[in-house]
């Protein structure tokens, strides 16, 4: 009984310490984002490459997934609204649920699966290969050169892709509202405008930025925890990914709480 209590206490303390460390580390990276010195030519190149790999390369696939998955989702939601006689809530469901909640979530999940996993592995491999040490030996700041461009890329990519996804969903919403409710574009537009709340859009964009920050920061942090053995790579990658998903859930819950309050 005693040992169970001790174990539990130790676990809780470890979790809290790790959480506090992550927040402190995030603060450090966040401050660097606003320092002019951070933006060297080398850092800008990394940033450019990161945006290219995370957003531009994925764009055709992302748009296709958004169109297929988003349209199906919007079709199902509209159908349900019609069946349950909740047509009056059509605009609010479209803006409040699909645009401000589902679209950022869909984007963040796609980017996490594609880029966060890659970043985590890349960092772990660099650590194992002693490339991080190389950077340090040449007095290249790891935070400025490796972390900040990836984190900025995360923020830019999630905000832009999520907005694109929302726009795609709204466009497919036009089609489905016509097919399911026989609604004209003018009526659809009016309902949408009535249901739109700028504060909701701002919260959604802010949430995307937070998502982008953490889904890149956490994998980097865990990747850098690798030892000099190759066997440590899968361990830190799986830990990193689990933590990224936990972070996504926490951010989602917090954003839902802001809506409730």
């Amino acid at each position: 009984m005693m040992s169970f209590g001790e174990n539990l206490g130790r676990r809780v303390i470890q979790m809290l310490t790790a959480f506090a460390d992550t927040i402190v580390f995030a603060g450090k990276v966040f401050i660097r984002i606003f320092r002019r010195k951070t933006y060297s030519s080398a850092m800008r190149e990394v940033l450019l490459n990161q945006i290219y790999f995370t957003s531009v390369q994925i764009l055709p696939v992302f748009l296709m997934v958004s169109i297929i998955f988003g349209s199906l989702l919007i079709g199902i939601v509209f159908q349900l609204l019609k069946e349950f006689g909740l047509t009056g809530f059509f605009g609010h469901v479209l803006m409040g649920l699909i645009v401000t909640e589902l679209s950022p979530l869909l984007t963040v999940l796609l980017i996490t699966l594609r880029s966060a996993a890659a970043i985590n592995t890349e960092m772990a491999v660099m650590k194992v290969n002693r490339e991080i040490k190389t950077l340090e030996m040449f007095r290249i700041d790891v935070i400025n050169y490796l972390l900040v461009p990836r984190v900025i890329n995360g923020i830019i990519s999630i905000v832009l892709l999520s907005s694109l996804c929302s726009i795609v969903l709204l466009v497919s919403g036009t089609l489905f509202s016509w097919l399911i409710f026989g609604m004209s574009i003018d009526v659809y537009k009016n309902i949408l405008l009535n249901a739109t709340n700028f504060s909701d859009i701002l919260i959604a964009l802010f949430k995307c930025a937070i998502y982008g920050f953490f889904i890149t920061l956490i994998p980097i942090r865990f990747g850098l925890r690798a030892s000099h053995e190759f066997t440590s790579i899968p361990i830190v990658v799986s830990q990193g990914m689990v933590n990224v998903f936990a972070a996504i859930l926490i951010i989602e819950v917090l954003s839902l709480l802001t809506k409730l309050l």
């Binding site: 945006i51 957003s55 832009l160």
Partner: peptide, 11 residues
């Protein structure tokens, strides 16, 4: 990258 950021931001 410029095209992507520019176009998306404009949209």
């Amino acid at each position: 990258v410029g095209l992507f950021i520019g176009c998306t931001a404009i949209i």
